[in-house]
């Protein structure tokens, strides 16, 4: 009697499935409950990985609900790689289709933000441009320059106040989120990612920089969306977040 790993896996992920024949305890008795140790190990270890990945999502839905939801998620979405730092990438899509939380339409974006935070944490290191270098550039040259952004930078533009909701669950003194579209910026000065809510227009500006636009057209994109866009605040967040790693100027012949 050969127990194939396919049958072992199927029974592992389905608690209602019978334990495969050919698995035994001492004295050759059927394995029974002994098989449940493996079932339990898989469910607990994956649930723990999801708790670590999504702390604010968990706070928003509550511990007991999160745990039950993780049990459903992990059976339909077991990891596809031994790198647990990537596990949970399907969570936003899962939340969007999970009936018990469909009325909480902002949850998928919270999950996206937490995935982006983890990516930022593990992203490649880069040396930022010194603020003096940036500030010493004459404004007309600065406006024509391209700013290369750090590999740890992430931008999430959402129809919900995604950064404000996240911050309200991590900082005691954070303001109550106002229900409006918002862009979240993640920077990583040093090793700890920082979440900021960008001012209106800031999302379009950073998206412009990320697409390789020089500063002037990125600014125009922001102003098209928000006529009174305040460049200073967004640029200040990029500088304090050590997110600008190169200033690329066109060489004029």
């Amino acid at each position: 009697m050969t127990v194939r790993q396919h049958d072992f896996t199927t029974a592992l992920l389905n608690p209602a499935a019978p334990v495969p024949h050919g698995l035994t305890g001492p004295a050759g008795r059927p394995a029974g409950k002994r098989f449940n140790v493996y079932r339990n190990n898989v469910a607990v270890s994956l649930t723990e990985a999801l708790k670590t990945a999504f702390p604010v999502l968990r706070a928003l839905v509550g511990d007991a609900f999160f745990e039950a939801m993780a049990g459903v998620f992990l059976r339909d979405n077991p990891p596809e790689s031994p790198l647990m730092m990537h596990y949970g990438a399907q969570m936003p899509g899962f939340l969007a289709g999970f009936a018990p939380v469909r009325h909480l339409a902002y949850l998928p974006d919270i999950a996206r933000l937490e995935l982006a935070l983890r990516e930022s944490y593990h992203a490649k290191d880069a040396t930022p441009v010194a603020p003096e270098v940036l500030l010493a550039l004459p404004p007309d040259r600065l406006m024509q320059a391209r700013l290369r952004l750090a590999p740890a930078l992430r931008l999430l533009q959402a129809p919900f106040p995604v950064a404000s909701i996240w911050l309200a669950h991590r900082q005691a003194d954070a303001p109550k989120p106002a229900m409006r579209p918002e862009a979240a910026l993640i920077t990583r000065p040093g090793f700890d990612p920082v979440v900021s809510a960008l001012p209106p227009g800031g999302g379009a500006f950073v998206a412009g920089l990320l697409s390789g636009q020089p500063l002037a057209p990125a600014l125009a994109m922001a102003e098209a969306e928000t006529p009174d866009f305040d460049l200073t605040e967004t640029l200040g967040l990029l500088i304090s977040g050590q997110a600008i790693i190169a200033i690329e100027e066109k060489v004029l012949l």
Binding site: Q5, T9, V42, L46, P78
Partner: peptide
């Protein structure tokens, strides 16, 4: 031990005969 079947990584050290 084994931990991967098809594309699924099961995050546990599973036994073999």
């Amino acid at each position: 031990a084994w931990s991967t079947h098809d594309t699924q990584f099961l995050n546990d050290l599973l036994p073999l005969p």
